[in-house]
């Protein structure tokens, strides 16, 4: 009965009309949009920060190293021999030796306690062998078995894996990720309720109109349509606002972060939300806007019946 082009034209017309209505009464709509934008920006921003932390640690991921501190009785020569043995292992990429005197020298230079050291008769520093695993064996499990076998060596006083902190960081990040999901779920629910409530008020304000439209043969779909489009616009503008908030915050943080990175000899710079992330954010926001208005409409429209 209705041709497709008329159908599409009608949808476009309702879509633009609802947008026009929203622009004409900006204050109440801006409140709803602001609540949506902020609520969505919070988990999104945290997600972006976590992703950045992940990127930073990924750069350090391939840098597991095992420091072997020799017993005081072990001479530099004995340490050399051990280093040669370790060098031949399949899972070892390279080995660095720090002799006792090198360790002492380094300490003297960097610590400023040089005078105090002069007073000591013996060099208190042990020889150190630093072992770098090959790329294949550079994962937590293999490195830990390597560590265990090094500890067995009679020359070794202490074997230390410089990856422990990384493991802890990963655990913290995993916790953070879950926390963000919980936060996102809760805030999404509140966005749903905010949109639902706004649409519910809009339905109440237009009660007479809805009743008249039902009287003269308007279908449920026809009556629903403007409210669903209003929900759509809330979703879209709330999504855009949260995107802007996140991007702005990252931009504000990027200056201090790159300064910090220079201190660590890195040219790392903060990355903001990528394209996929932006699309997901907008899509989720629009979905929440539509779903919220759908719930309000299906709960409240049936109650309005002409008499």
């Amino acid at each position: 009965m209705i041709s497709p082009s008329v159908y599409i034209a009608r949808h476009m017309q309702v879509m633009l009309a609802t947008l026009g209505d929203m622009i004409r009464s900006p204050m109440s709509n801006l409140m709803t949009i602001a609540v949506m934008g902020i609520a969505l920006a919070l988990p999104t921003g945290l997600h972006v920060i976590l992703k950045n932390v992940q990127q930073v640690t990924a750069q350090w991921d391939g840098a597991a190293q095992i420091s072997l501190f020799m017993k005081p009785s072990v001479t530099d020569k004995q340490a050399d021999q051990l280093a040669n043995i370790l060098q031949k292992r399949q899972d070892v990429k390279s080995v660095t030796r720090i002799t006792r005197s090198e360790a002492l020298e380094e300490f003297r230079k960097n610590s400023g306690f040089g005078e105090a050291l002069e007073a000591l008769e013996d060099n208190p520093f042990p020889a150190v062998i630093v072992v770098f695993p090959t790329e294949q064996s550079d994962n937590l499990l293999t490195v830990q078995t390597m560590l265990a076998s090094f500890k067995q060596r009679p020359e070794v006083e202490l074997a230390q894996l410089d990856m422990q902190w990384l493991k802890r960081l990963y655990a913290i990040m995993d916790f953070g990720r879950r926390g963000i999901w919980v936060l996102a779920a809760m805030l999404s629910l509140s966005v749903l309720l905010v949109v639902g409530n706004t649409i519910r008020l809009a339905i109440q304000n237009r009660r007479d109109e809805i009743e008249i439209i039902k009287l003269i043969g308007g279908t449920d779909a026809f009556i629903r349509r403007p409210f669903l489009y209003t929900g759509f616009w809330y979703g879209l503008s709330g999504g855009i606002l949260s995107w802007l908030l996140v991007t702005l915050s990252i931009w504000l943080l990027s200056g201090p972060v790159s300064q910090l990175a220079t201190l660590y000899d890195s040219n790392y710079s903060l990355s903001s939300l990528d394209l996929l992330g932006s699309i997901i954010l907008l899509g989720l926001s629009i979905f929440l806007g539509l779903a919220g208005s759908w719930i309000a409409v299906s709960r409240h429209l049936d109650a309005i019946e002409p008499e």
Binding site: M1, A9, R10, L215
Partner: peptide, 23 residues
């Protein structure tokens, strides 16, 4: 049962809009 925030034209047009008649 007229809509008081719409013009006479829009009030009369309502059944046609509902039925999907072209502009």
């Amino acid at each position: 049962k007229l809509l008081f925030d719409r013009t006479v034209f829009d009030n009369v047009a309502l059944p046609l809009v509902i039925a999907g008649v072209s502009h």
